[in-house]
């Protein structure tokens, strides 16, 4: 476990910067995390992705497949990669306060 400080606020995160306690997440956390990974300011499009991931995770305990993400947000795949330079896993899921997914990510 380690700590990061963003704009004066401290967060307990794992080595990859994912929130240690996902339940502590809120929109402010998302906004702050997005400033550290090249995502920048969160637009409505970002929020539609982040909120969907968050809701899905709260219901299902896992991140949604990219297909669902595209279908629910109405965004094209390539748009999602542009919105989140670190990709859906290390970018969007991290901003949505999920724990780091297993696998090659």
């Amino acid at each position: 476990m380690s700590q990061i400080e963003i704009e004066g606020r401290q967060f307990e995160v794992d080595g990859d910067g994912f929130l240690e306690e996902p339940e502590l997440w809120n929109e402010e956390v998302a906004r702050l995390f997005a400033t550290t990974d090249g995502t920048g300011e969160l637009t409505d499009k970002h929020w539609s992705v982040v909120n969907y991931i968050r809701e899905y995770w709260e219901a299902e305990g896992t991140a949604p497949m990219i297909r669902k993400l595209c279908q629910h947000s109405g965004l094209h795949l390539r748009e999602i990669y542009e919105l989140f330079p670190m990709g859906p896993a290390k970018g969007a899921c991290r901003i949505a306060g999920l724990p780091k997914p297993d696998g090659c990510v």
């Binding site: 497949m65 990219i66 090659c104 990510v105």
Partner: peptide, 11 residues
């Protein structure tokens, strides 16, 4: 496949 392809990176 590598599972990360269908999950996050299907291009």
């Amino acid at each position: 496949l590598n599972p990360r392809e269908p999950k996050f990176f299907p291009l």
